[in-house]
């Protein structure tokens, strides 16, 4: 029961987005409807609402924080790898055929969307190669794929290395396909992944064609030592 309908100086200062000292000054200057009793200042909710309406002031009395926009769930790299899965023996002898057989293997993409996804991946490669060097590439579409339930990275080991127009000219043996339902995840995952791919140990580890649990363990370790 106590203080259900009243606010303290501090409560009000957060509601109005000002310093508590400002509230105290306004009370001293007689500009706020303050409750007359008590040593510490208290404000009645009803009076404040009336006052705000009269002065055309926005009063944020409800407890919901306005910072809802920030709390998007971040998906960690290891989680995305687990979502995606590891595929080996990808057939193909050029960029398009390799990508085609990659796309074919992803169970989360509905069959109807597969040709479209392939087009997008190829289009992206034509714009600028995603071969990051050291025999690895990160193919991804430039658009978001809203049909996906969650963001994922599929790891594809090629049967034989393919010339990928990579930055360092090396043939590519490993593809990380980043597929995301929204662009925010995409950028985050891409950034995290490309960070890992600059680590020499990690590259050596990848060349050993690890299993999923090893890969996850390794990425978690890397992420922890270098939080982005």
């Amino acid at each position: 029961m106590k203080n259900h309908m009243t606010l303290s100086v501090f409560d009000l200062s957060t509601c109005l987005g000002v310093n508590p000292d400002t509230i105290k000054r306004w009370v001293r200057q007689g500009k706020l409807p303050v409750l007359p009793k008590g040593a510490d200042l208290r404000f009645q909710k009803k009076d404040l609402e009336k006052w705000a309406a009269l002065h055309n002031i926005r009063l944020n009395l409800s407890d919901k924080k306005s910072g809802e926009k920030q709390n998007q769930i971040e998906v960690s790299l290891s989680q995305a790898l687990q979502n995606g899965g590891i595929y080996s023996d990808i057939q193909g002898n050029d960029v398009v055929t390799v990508l085609a057989s990659c796309v074919k293997k992803i169970p989360q993409v509905p069959d109807d969307f597969k040709p479209d996804l392939l087009d997008r991946l190829v289009e992206r490669e034509n714009a600028f190669s995603t071969g990051v060097g050291n025999g690895m590439a990160i193919p991804h579409p430039r658009q978001q794929l809203s049909y996906l339930p969650h963001p994922m990275i599929t790891v594809n080991f090629l049967a034989s290395p393919v010339d990928y127009n990579a930055l360092d000219g090396q043939p590519v043996f490993l593809l990380f396909c980043i597929l995301c339902p929204s662009l925010q995840y995409h950028l985050h995952l891409l950034s995290a992944l490309s960070f890992c791919l600059r680590d020499k140990d990690f590259i050596r580890f990848l060349k050993s064609r690890p299993q999923m649990d090893q890969l996850v363990e390794k990425t978690v370790m890397l992420q922890e030592t270098n939080p982005l």
């Binding site: 430039r142 995409h186 950028l187």
Partner: peptide, 16 residues
């Protein structure tokens, strides 16, 4: 945080 990661300089376009 993306600006500080040179690894993705060539990976993304501005619309992403």
């Amino acid at each position: 945080r993306y600006v500080l990661n040179p690894g993705i300089y060539d990976m993304v376009f501005l619309n992403q």
